[in-house]
Design a protein around this nucleic acid. Structure first.
Lengths: 248, 248
DNA sequence: AGATTACCTGTCGTTTCCGACAGGTTCTTT
DNA sequence: AAAGAACCTGTCGGAAACGACAGGTAATCT
């Protein structure tokens, strides 16, 4: 282990080349060009819950055929896809071969994926970011079943790193990194939001902070206005998802 | 790449051994016993914001000297430590050598860490889980500066995987995995919470869902009670952190 | 057949919140 | 010396939320 072999730097080469890209498509092209070096059939990146004023739609960069993409979108598979729900349920890479396929709706999804030549084996890396966003980075292979376990171990190590770098880079190039909200809220404003999130009333909070009720209201008013929130509840949910206040 | 060498399985051996452990301490012991195989001086795991009824304190498993731990805790360094704030600010591994050390308070922390023999180089892996919890998995080394870049690449690949498995396992053994909340809330209850989180009033929500105002209130009452929340704002913040409702 | 669960709706009275007016201090930056 | 920002406080009145009563249906499980 003490002298890492040169081949160990491949994933970092890829990461460097992605970092140099300026658009989501270009970064994905780097992945596409390097797929064959890992014996992959597909590489797919799906970013959900992206927090941004401009952008509410998911970030998508996939190598699947346009037909499968269209079918997937039209059938609203993102809400059925067992890989997505498994990803939402944990933090570890998901081996598609270990997904429970007893339920008929799930068999259907996998069956149709096969028809669109997605490949037998798959690995999906769930990614949760600092803004509460969620992404799924998936790779597909099609090797004899007996080769899969060892291939999988290699892929997990390589793509755990690549997928997180890719996501972090994707947010940057899509200019999602800076939600200045955290910096724009004053300490008092955040404090009052935190206590509201903890279920305290304005009266409670005023007692806790040793302020008048009016002052607590004042800070909450400012917090609402800075966060473009329609209510304190709204402000709290925004503050949480923007990472402005910690979890209760 | 197509024939992964046997040494590539080391991290998975460690993972298997951790999986077999029944307590946080035992899992950490596995890491401690394997430190030398990666030339490490320390391995530290810190779990914050752990969502649980029972447990509000952080999960801690570190190899640092008790003196340093005590000093760290007493000085409230968790709120100053630049590694922690860097981790909270992103998703990528943090190289301690790249931390900005111009600010005097930060120089102080690093200087004191040196005194307690923490090691020159460090890598910290920020981990965000599905319950909104945050963890930091750190490793330390002490090698000549010129050896660090290549060692770092190897460590990033190995411990990106190990750290996420460790966190996932830690939540399991500490019985934090199942917050049945998501399953206990009915569809309508979640729906009403989502609209509240989006800033809608009860009247708005009733119009959106085609229900009476009383019914929306009814669902919110049930949601509050199921989540042990003191207000709708409280319920929303809990629902978000428990992953019951998606982000706004 | 009874129990359970999710669902739906109503009123009354109280509490809490929130917007719009008003006033102020202290500290730092320009 | 002026400007800006973060902080603090007051009152009035209306809007919204909430708790505590009340009533109901439809579907599923035991």
């Amino acid at each position: 282990m003490r002298n890492p072999s040169p081949e160990n730097t491949l994933s970092f080469e890829i990461i460097d080349r992605i970092s140099a890209a300026a658009k989501l498509e270009e970064g994905h092209a780097v992945l596409r060009e390097n797929m064959h070096r890992f014996d992959l059939k597909h590489v797919a990146y799906l970013g959900l819950n992206i927090p941004s004023e401009r952008r509410r739609k998911p970030l998508v960069a996939v190598t699947y055929s346009p037909e499968w993409q269209r079918h997937y979108e039209q059938s609203d598979y993102v809400n059925i896809d067992p890989v997505v729900s498994a990803g939402l349920g944990g933090i570890l890479p998901i081996d598609w071969t270990e997904i429970d396929r007893t339920r008929p709706t799930i068999r259907k999804v996998f069956g149709e994926a096969q028809e669109f030549d997605v490949g037998m084996q798959g690995l999906s890396f769930p990614i949760r970011g600092r803004y509460g966003e969620f992404a799924l980075f998936s790779i597909n292979a099609d090797v004899p079943a007996r080769n899969w376990p060892s291939l999988k171990k290699m892929l997990v190590k390589e793509f755990m790193v690549i997928s997180y770098y890719f996501h972090s880079w994707a947010l940057q190039v899509e200019q999602i990194e800076q939600n200045d909200f955290a910096g724009k809220l004053s300490e008092r404003e955040k404090e009052c939001l935190r206590w509201s999130a903890a279920g305290k009333t304005i009266w409670d909070t005023s007692a806790i902070l040793g302020l008048s009720e009016r002052t607590v209201r004042f800070h909450l008013e400012n917090a609402r206005s800075k966060l473009n929130a329609l209510s304190t509840t709204h402000a709290v949910s925004k503050a949480i998802s923007y990472g402005v206040i910690p979890l209760p």
